[in-house]
Design a protein around this nucleic acid. Sequence first.
RNA 1: GGCGCGUUCGUCUAGCCAGGUCCAGGACACCUCUCUUUCACAGAGGCGACACGGGUUCGAAUCCCGUACGCGCUACCA
Length: 508
Amino acid sequence: MSTAPVRVRFAPSPTGALHVGGVRTALFNYLFARHHGGEFLLRIEDTDQKRYVPKAEEYIMEALAWCGISPDYSPKTGGPDAPYRQSERKPMYRQYAEQLVASGHAYYAFDTEEELETMRENAEKAGMKNWQYNAITRQNMRNSLTLPADEVQRLLDGGANYVVRMKIPRNEEIRFEDAIRGWVLFQTNQLDDKVLMKQDGMPTYHLANVVDDHLMHITHVIRGEEWLPSAPLHVYMYQCFGWTAPVFAHLPLLLSPDGKGKLSKRDGDKHGFPIFPLDWHNPETGETAKGYREAGYLPDAFINFLALLGWNPGNDQEILTREEMVKLFTLERVGKSGVKFDKAKSVWFNATYLRALTPAELLPHLKAQLAAAGVAHTRDDAFLLSVVPLIQERAEYLTDLAPQAAPYLVAPQTFDPELVAKRWNPQGAEFIAGLLPQLQSFEPWEEAPLEAFVKETVEAAGLGLGKVMPALRLALTNRMQGAELFRIFELLGREETLARLEAALARL
RNA sequence: GGCGCGUUCGUCUAGCCAGGUCCAGGACACCUCUCUUUCACAGAGGCGACACGGGUUCGAAUCCCGUACGCGCUACCA
């Protein structure tokens, strides 16, 4: 391991919205960089022009910004090793591919995609499960290893289509020490001659990622476990280039909550949780997929939840500030096994963070939610501020705020027949009617005295509280859940309270 | 199929590298109770796991071997 300053990268492909798994990979890279006082950069791997989705890159940056894990360098900010978009680095890759050809580690292959397809099909008919372009089969293909030198030159000069392939040797071992998994051993016989440079002149992921990681002085490659099988190829490439390889760390996969398999969009739909950080408007299908932001999650809660998916701080603490995460994050404490996504726990984190906010911090959220929900009211900020504590402990998502606050802001326009049938009753109504004049002059208009007074009066009337309390709640808010009844009295004030009670008596 | 990686409560995990203090600790979820004639919060309690089989050892969740199961990869995609 070198002593160079830590530098890591998050290298997504702009083929669509960033998935939660990608956010977690970015988060772990970010935490690792910050922990070591290093740098974290974003590199856009858009070498596949066929899968390129226009808005994806913008989405990725906005999502990282919302999560508070913006990179030090990105295509947007630039930086010492710009550009950070591989399509813009296209001219740089060819020389490295040529270098490997020159050193005998790679070669030109002229086989067409159709020819390769035919080979695979024939092999399968012959009972071979997976045909690979490798040390054995390449001898029967059209490449610079089998064709005469002059013909190769002729093809090249004639502008023939070709790819550059890695020449994987036979009977060798490749091993490397993964920072999370320890020593991992592969046999080169299992590897195939991966394409490094595509026909269109673009590098494949393998070439681009190795070249860029080297050029950008990446010290640690922290990525998903799905990359583990291609890690030996990358390690071998570093060897062929004569470069020092970065430390590799392959993160456990995020799994579907039920069955198995990688977490997918489908799982989110099925279990009712977002799979993307922000709403994603798919430009191809026109569909919109829900995001955590729009679903009412607080970014800090979301991040805290994600951080604990595959990592733990080594103690029993689960609520961690950004600073604590940075301070405690190490790859040693990252687990090896796949992690099932747990919606219930994500909700718990959000509700816990929501409750921890001060009323003043929550006020802007409440106002935004009321506006978004179209709740028309005439109350001022001071009143809204006094509503916050009543709804804060009952909300799980920010989107719960408006529906829960509404009954305190707007008098019931109608009453739910089911609630009326269950909670409204003649004795209660009669009692409430008789109570009104007394409340007219009751002092002080505060929760505790009001509660004591009303309860005493109910008992004096020989009625059960059950006849009166639910009826009062119904009359006031048309809800059977919510803040303490007399807290609502105090909040609404004498005038509004009496007005609502009279209106209810008149209509029920 | 081949190769790789993995396997502690339903879920996330601590413990494993440096075997005994673990009849396995915490959190979420679930259940019960308290508070409250609402809902929620909060508090108290409960349920609940070392995949299986061998071996090493006085002693194994921890070390070794095997089996099973799961996942990943197996493109001129990343």
